[in-house]
Write a protein that binds this DNA or RNA. Sequence first.
RNA 1: GCCAGGGUGGCGGAACUGGUAGACGCAGGAGACUUAAAAUCUUCCGGCUUGACGAAGCCGUCCGGGUUCGAGUCCCGGCCCUGGCACCA
Length: 846
Amino acid sequence: MRRAGVAGRGRPWMDGRTVEERYQPRSIEAKWQRIWEERGLFAPRPGGEKFYLLEMFPYPSGRIHMGHVRVYAIGDAIGRSLCMKGRRVLHPMGWDAFGLPAENAAIQHRTHPAQWTRENIAYMRGQLRRLGLSYDWSREIATCDPAYYKWEQWIFLRKLERGLAYRSDAYVNWCEHCETVLANEQVEGGLCWRCEGPVGQKRLSQWFLRITAYAEELLAGCDHLPGWPERVLTMQRNWIGKSTGAEIDFRLEGRDGAIRVFTTRQDTLFGATFMSLAPEHPLAVELTRGTACEAEVKAFIDRVVVQDKFRRGAEDYEKEGIFTGAYCLNPMTGGRMPIYVANFVLMDYGTGAVMAVPAHDQRDLDFARKYGLPVIVVVQPEGARLDSPTMAEAWTGPGVMVNSGPYDGMTSEAFKRAIVDDLERTGRGKASVNYRLKDWGVSRQRYWGAPIPVIHCGRDGIVPVPDGDLPVLLPTDVALTGHGVSPLASLESFVHTRCPKCGGAARRETDTFDTFMESSWYFLRYLDPHNDGAPFDREKADAWMPVDQYIGGIEHAVLHLLYARFFTKVLRDLGLLGAGEPFGNLLTQGMVRKENPKTGKIEKMSKSKGNVVDPEELIERYGADTARLFILFAAPPEKDLEWSDTAVEGAFRFLSRVWRLVAQTRDAIAGVAPTPAGSALTTAQAALRRRVHQTIKRVSDDLDGRFHFNTALSSIMELTNALYAYEDDGSPASRAVLREAIEALLGCLHPFTPHVTEELWEALGHDRTLVETAWPAPDPSALEADDITIVVQVNGRLRDNIRVPRDATKEQVVEIALASENVRRHAGGAVKKEIYVPGKLLNLVV
RNA sequence: GCCAGGGUGGCGGAACUGGUAGACGCAGGAGACUUAAAAUCUUCCGGCUUGACGAAGCCGUCCGGGUUCGAGUCCCGGCCCUGGCACCA
């Protein structure tokens, strides 16, 4: 038992009380978690406007980390405040359960990925419940559940029917020693993470989704997502990378055929002096077949192709190439252009062939100087003369055409259009649009993923698994060794099947889907999670979509968010829903970072880096409310947060302060109505009331779209400080002000620290939970004071603060300002100009 | 390398639209209460200079320039840090 101490002195409502209760979160939190759940408060409540609130679902890696606490505390603060504002909130949770770590853990710990995943889900679900998050658990899904991936397979088959899925060769990382495919993450500095052997590239036939068919719509959609952060839209636009230019054919010399290039600089065509091919370009091999160059070129290609992913793009990567011995012809000049294979030309972009214009492209210029190739200036910049033999820097800007036959003297901008007409007329090229975006390779040579539902038949080729046979179940009896191409390929019982068309013996596809497939439509499955006749019901989808607020890490700015947009558009075109965009508003939360013990650098917290902080200990020791308060108070959500262990204590201290405040005030305000508006108030009462309503307004604004929880919380702390400083005179007016203040404090704080506020709310005599109580409303008449402070500057430097009546005119403000001794001292008598920002600032220029 | 973002006290951060830089909190100092400690309460807390002790002045938001009556905020050029780069999710 403790004495209240000095806290009560001079404050009649605290006098002599013994405070028996100390803030002890453990029992309180369990109690309220139980009550919320028993009353089913987090299923969408009838009435009110719909609000679909969604945070990116977690990968069940084992235990939650601080990044999870952050994103789910953010979502919960938004969700609870919306509930209080009367919205019909849908707030589901599930598990992104397929993925590589389960397989690694299985190999390492001799467990099964399914078991490992199930155990992790069970554990993490418990952790999320202990955080007191407002989820509707009846909608929980796990993507490794056949009831989920059945519909993913179904969606894939619809794409296959529409030509949106196709097969093509692609390279994967290949460790010769382990004889296995490696993810990029499993390659460290070009070496295998297990055996540290060299990693090469292996060509495999794989499945692709034709996301490029939606490139234009995905790009255009970026202009109609006002609720997304501009920086995410910028990254998506750049990722799609639309460029307009021309396709031009360069005839081969001495044989049939041509090399097609895409260029945005068709205006420099007269200056194209050689051709660069990607090593993967089919002509690279074909042109040298049977020639003296064959062996050398093949060796070069083999070397580059095997290395490319890791070497290309590396800082010290030397640009190099090799001559094929063949030539093509410049369509305008007829000049002979030697054809090179160059390591910096990418097969994925454009046509895999680049017309090289050394005078107007730096890379081409470096290459030309290195291999002694001609440089011809065709665009002369204004006010300078480029000299082909000596120039060291390529000119990439606009100018006037030279060395371009009949087009000399034209501006390069005008010529860009003119040459396209010329090329089209003569059939040597045409206007063209190119995207940097590539089709999405979805085949993985992994076990722990959704099987790709196709069958390879010797007679009928690729045959889709009939809808009635879905799902293609992932077998459980597979041996994971970390060796071999696809784990499923070694499982005879899985591989051998019958062709659905001819009934003959056939083989199943043994690759599984990229796990981004699951996360591209899970937000739709939440709307109808138990449907076994369709992925989801259209009516339900139309009732809830789009997601009103999506929250997740900035690291997903491009891939996941773009894939989800793509899926939504495809499903819309399949007639499965009306919405064409999945997420109306997006909040990208910054990362929680910490020093990586291996590198000593401050990096994103991740298990693979070994720099995670386990929130469990924090919750054990201080409770979920403190953990949530701490992480929300530490920084605004979109900013990165560098972890420090020190400040948690302060968050707990604040909640204890609130606890004591209510415990000590409770009797004084018991049975009092919180309605001081009509009464005549003293200055101190009016000041507290003003503070209360300013706080409500501030917190409401910060929660509504701005999401600056840290400043919302700081204003709640200021209100708490004001309440501690307030001296109650025991009058009915004072008690009403006090009651109103305490209730507003608890209401404003509830979205952030729900358990402690519920407990205190109940202690004030309320039967209804705070979640079901209306959000406090600011009273505009209580917000303004009679006097305001004006900042007085002289020549932009602060010289004084003055108090003036709220409705003072500029002349009055200047008069009062000049009465200030300090202002007079600096201004002298010679004020040249008065700049007055009404209600804020006066700057006297002398 | 390419794309995107960030840099403010000892620390996390605040300053929302170009208008008082450092709210709120952490850490720290001093004091009250206590036999003592913890807890709690009061108070100080960017640097420098002056001070008749009320205060006043100068410098200060990564660095260098610029625009403006006024710049943490806008513009130009650097440096450093972080995320993503298509098989971690």
